[in-house]
């Protein structure tokens, strides 16, 4: 028997078992791409509603035109003159976008994990879920309270910040590359805190474009050859 090749095989198996039991590696690149597209559609729709609302307000009150045109004051004026109908519409878009992104991301990862024969609900996946959801739920509650207290302008930047931190935390339990996506989201969120009036663009870039870029890279790196 060739003992060198068998010890190489043994080491290979050991490495595989360690990886399989410590990280959930079936996360599909398609999940990222799908979530990113959902975010872009959601942000686009929200942008459309805000633009429509601005035009309506300006047409009844032409004196506000400059304030709505100026990015530094635009946000404030939306929240100053915006009514409950507008906020409910925006909240509905947010919830619908989040749900659609989550469901699609789940479906693509489910397909990949069944293909690889890795159980979707093994303890590795559960651990990843717990460690991702915990910071997200805590962050979600903070955002909810911010909205109640009227700090609407902080919602989009802070959702990027919390999401980034959640990803950085989760990266220990899944593909390590998730960490870099987390850094990207966190950085965008922090910068966006200081750039008034553009938070919807930062949000769309973070949740849309970054997800799509990440998804394509992951697909290229891990899934392209296995099909």
């Amino acid at each position: 028997m060739n003992s060198e090749t068998s010890s190489l095989e043994a080491l290979h198996d050991i490495k595989k078992m360690m990886e399989r039991s410590s990280r959930f590696i079936s996360l599909s690149g398609w999940s990222g791409i799908a979530a990113g597209i959902c975010a872009l559609v959601g942000a686009g729709y929200a942008h459309h509603i805000l633009a429509k609302y601005a035009n309506e307000t300006i047409s009844t009150n032409p004196g506000l035109k400059e304030d709505f045109k100026n990015p530094a004051t635009r946000g404030e004026y939306f929240f100053k003159y915006g009514d409950n109908v507008l906020f409910h519409q925006l909240l509905q878009i947010a919830i619908f976008t989040f749900a659609a992104a989550l469901i699609l991301a789940f479906i693509f990862t489910y397909i990949r994990s069944t293909r690889k024969g890795v159980p979707m609900w093994g303890f590795v996946a559960k651990r990843l879920m717990w460690n991702t959801m915990l910071p997200l739920i805590a962050g979600g509650l903070v955002l909810l309270r911010m909205m109640q207290m009227g700090y609407f302008e902080l919602v989009a930047p802070c959702s990027l910040v919390f999401y980034g931190l959640a990803l950085i935390h989760a990266s220990k339990y899944t593909l390590g590359e998730v960490r870099y996506l987390g850094y990207g989201e966190l950085l965008l969120g922090l910068v966006s805190l200081w750039v008034k009036g553009y938070s919807i663009y930062f949000w769309a870039f973070g949740f849309g474009i970054l997800h799509i870029i990440y998804g394509i890279i992951m697909w290229w790196k891990y899934e392209r050859t296995s099909n």
């Binding site: 043994a10 198996d13 050991i14 490495k15 078992m17 360690m18 399989r20 039991s21 410590s22 159980p119 093994g122 303890f123």
Partner: peptide
């Protein structure tokens, strides 16, 4: 034994694993 080697690999990187999870992993 590949099985004992597998068990040890899993337990080296995880604090605690139950029977069913081990069975599934291996």
């Amino acid at each position: 034994s590949r099985i004992r080697m597998g068990v040890m690999s899993v337990l080296l990187v995880n604090d605690e694993v139950n029977f069913n999870d081990l069975k599934q992993l291996l």
